[in-house]
């Protein structure tokens, strides 16, 4: 067990190092000198040169990479070229929205997908299976910005249950903040729940056809008992994989939904930084996302080991 986790941790740390190198080098070859961009078109070349020195842009490549990394390790992401504030502050402001939104959407998606997938698999080819399959097909097909606008129209404009957008901040209290995140979370969760429900269904159907399910029935378990006690955990592995992927996708991939609901999230920050050529912000957001993906992958690995003893192997 420990060996398995150590092995996973080592390979994930290596990916993190590799990813940081790639991100750094890509940012180097991207056209546009941040210093001249910051000073404007009519800047004095001497002033630009001075700013370059100040930003450390004139140092050799390896040194700058090491400087960047050691800064990251101390939580120092550098200063934004456009906003002139520490990048870590910018990111922190956004993470407190994007992370809860992602978790909220993921929770909703799981809560919808599990019962739907289980229902569909246990009553295969029945009316309930067909409706779940139909609904999920629709859920994958509907563009989520359109669905988000419909949600706004129905629940914000007509029913006035929710506000149409914006975020009051966590200072306003837990419930108002959660309320502001509810419609965006639903809009994000719909396609994810549809995909997850389908994965759950097919994984469970495969498991239900396994020999050990027949053994369980021969022991005297009813169909429902056999499903709960023997099929679910075995069916979980592919589902966990998808949940892990969805988390990484939602964390930064919510930009369209963030725009629809005027949420100042990570996706919007990255988008703005790209248009303003604020490379240091882009770089920081990207490395943060890579880090998040790697942490989630590790958590999914842990969950695999919990679900499947064969992955734990014997301790040596």
């Amino acid at each position: 067990m420990t060996a398995y986790l150590l092995r996973r941790l080592l390979s994930l740390s290596l990916s993190l190092v590799a990813a940081s190198l790639v991100i750094f080098l890509v940012m180097e070859v991207v056209p546009g000198d941040p210093a001249s961009f910051m000073m404007g078109i009519n800047a004095d070349p001497q002033a630009v040169a001075a700013l370059r020195t100040q930003l450390g842009l004139d140092q050799p490549l390896p040194l700058r990479y090491l400087g960047w990394i050691s800064g990251l390790l101390q939580g120092d992401f550098g200063i934004s070229y456009t906003y002139r504030v520490p990048v870590s502050e910018l990111i922190a402001e956004r993470v407190v929205i994007s992370l809860p939104l992602t978790l909220y959407a993921l929770a909703l998606s799981t809560l919808i997908a599990f019962p739907a997938g289980i229902l569909a698999a246990s009553r295969r080819n029945s009316a309930s299976d067909l409706s779940v399959m139909g609904a999920t097909q629709l859920g994958v097909a509907i563009p989520n910005f359109w669905f988000a606008m419909i949600l706004v129209l129905v629940f914000a404009v007509n029913l006035r249950w929710f506000s149409a957008g914006g975020f009051p901040g966590w200072e306003a209290g837990f419930w108002p903040a959660m309320k502001a995140l509810t419609l965006p979370a639903i809009a994000l969760a719909l396609p994810q729940a549809s995909i997850l429900a389908r994965v759950m269904r097919s994984s469970l159907i495969d498991t239900l056809n396994e020999d050990f399910m027949r053994t369980a029935r021969a022991k005297g378990l009813s169909r429902g008992q056999a499903l709960r006690r023997h099929a679910l955990r075995n069916a979980l592995i592919p589902v966990l994989t998808i949940i892990g992927l969805q988390f990484s996708f939602l964390l930064a991939g919510g930009i369209i939904i963030e725009n629809v609901f005027y949420l100042p999230g990570l996706g919007r920050l990255a988008f703005q930084a790209i248009t303003q050529r604020d490379l240091i912000v882009v770089r920081s957001v990207v490395i943060l996302l890579v880090f998040a993906v790697i942490v989630v992958t590790f958590l999914v690995d842990l969950a695999y080991a919990a679900a499947d003893p064969r992955l734990r192997r014997r301790r040596t």
């Binding site: 020999d211 050990f212 053994t215 023997h230 955990r233 679900a307 003893p309 064969r310």
Partner: peptide, 12 residues
């Protein structure tokens, strides 16, 4: 059953 390799639940 015939196939002992698959007749038991692998996760229990």
């Amino acid at each position: 059953f015939q196939e002992p390799m698959t007749a038991l639940n692998p996760v229990r």
